[in-house]
Every structure is written in C-alpha cells, then in structure tokens.
C-alpha cells in the first residue's frame, strides 16, 4: 500500500471532524478518579516529599525499584556479554564538522546541569533519578554523535560507577533494615515539605539510581556505536 503525506493529512482532517461530531453528540469529558487523593493523603502523613510519585516509587514501592534497576542491569549485561568480542575502536559516525564540535562543547555542561537539577529536585518537582540519569546519558550520546573519534569513555570507569551505585542502593536498604526494620525505610530527619533538604532518604536513593542508570545507558549506546562485523 502506497502511503503519502497527503493521505495522512486527509485522514487526520476526517478523523478530527469525526471527533468534533462525537464531542457534540456525546459530550466527552475527563474522568477523574479517587485513587490520587487517597495516595496524597497517605503521602502527607508519612514522607515530607512534595512530589507524591517520588514517595510511591522509592518509599512505598522501594522493592519494585530495586527490581527495575536489576532488570536494566541484566539487559546491559546481556548486551555486553554478546557484543564484547566485536568491539572496534572506531565510531560508526564519521561525520566531521568543527562547528558541531565547538557547539557541543558548550551544550554538554548545560545538559548535564539540567540532568543534575532534575535529579536533586526529584522530591520537589516532576522528575527523579531515572529521568535525570537518562538526560545525563543523552548528553554523552550527543558527544558520541558529534565528536566521532575524538571522544571516548573508559569502560572500567563506567562499570565501577555502576557497581558502586548499585551497591550503595542495596547498602542503604540494608542499613534501614538494621535501624528501623524496613527495607528502604526512612531513618534520616524529614525536614520541612518543599525545601531542598527534605524527604529524608529519598534524595539519596535517587542519586544512587541516577548514577546507575546514566552509566548503564551510556555504556549501551557506546556498545551500539562501536560494534563492527558481527558474523
């Protein structure tokens, strides 16, 4: 079937007209549920975190976060195990442009700054360790794309950062088991809601998660960019 831009536009316009007719006849509106206010009520009593999603991810469901991080680690581990023998020192992007290189030098600190901001404000505003970690990894991805063979990362450092942060995550959980008898429970002073140093143990967990995620995604992209001649 041949597909052109014109047919996409025509089907778009037709479907928007159908939506308009449906809106007139059926009176659609957003359905609000009651689960959100329930979670917000519990959150106000237990953790002093302004972002309720954060306290769900790291406090109520901390064990599930450990599972997610383990799944990510296993996928990167499988990729590195399968592709280790085929690594080349050359980048597949052979595009050389001095303008791009100079501009990327300016952009890299800005993107890393944005990622760090997202991480350390994870308990105050939308975002958190996973999102900020992927933003930092995308800054490294930009460096890989722009400076083809001038930029390289040592895999030892990436693996060291990843394993240290994972060990730190688990050690934090074990420490809280020893102190208050709950995995990833809060044993630090809570502080006041809405301030930077509040939320107890949540920012620490997010810093560990962000280092782990950024190291993993960076090494994934590095593997994909440098493989050559898979038989």
């Amino acid at each position: 079937m041949k597909f052109s831009i014109r047919s996409i536009f025509i089907s778009l316009i037709v479907s928007i007209m159908i939506v308009l007719l449906l809106q007139i006849f059926l009176q659609f509106d957003l359905v609000t549920s009651s689960a959100g206010s329930f979670v917000l009520n519990i959150n106000a009593n237990s953790t002093e975190s302004a972002n309720a999603v954060t306290s769900v991810v790291t406090y109520f469901r901390g064990f599930d976060t450990l599972g997610e991080v383990t799944i990510l680690f296993l996928s990167i581990f499988g990729i590195s195990l399968g592709l280790e023998g085929y690594r080349d020192k050359f980048n597949i992007f052979a595009y050389e442009n001095s303008l791009l290189k100079i501009a990327v030098d300016t952009l890299f600190p800005l993107i890393v700054l944005f990622g760090v901001y997202i991480i350390i404000h994870g308990h105050l505003s939308p975002g958190g360790g996973f999102q900020g970690g992927v933003i930092i990894a995308s800054a490294f991805l930009l460096m890989f794309l722009a400076k083809s063979n001038d930029f390289s990362l040592k895999h030892n450092i990436l693996e060291l950062a990843e394993s240290l942060s994972g060990a730190g995550f688990i050690l934090l959980g074990v420490l809280s088991i020893l102190i208050i008898n709950r995995f990833l429970g809060n044993f630090l002073p809570l502080g006041k809601i809405g301030e930077l140093f509040s939320g107890g143990v949540i920012p620490l967990i997010y810093i560990f998660v962000s280092i782990k995620v950024s190291a993993e995604i960076t090494s994934l992209v590095e593997y994909f960019i440098r493989i050559k001649d898979v038989k």
């Binding site: 303008l99 952009l107 800005l110």
Partner: peptide
C-alpha cells in the same frame, strides 16, 4: 535565560547541519 541560551545555540546549529 538558560533556556534562551539553549535555543540560541541549538536552533542555528541544527539548521546548519541539515543544510550541509
């Protein structure tokens, strides 16, 4: 202003790379 700086760097740069 950081956002404005970001737009001022990326927009002409991407245009230049696309044209090239």
């Amino acid at each position: 202003s950081i956002l404005a700086l970001f737009i001022l760097i990326t927009n002409p740069l991407s245009s230049s790379i696309l044209a090239r």
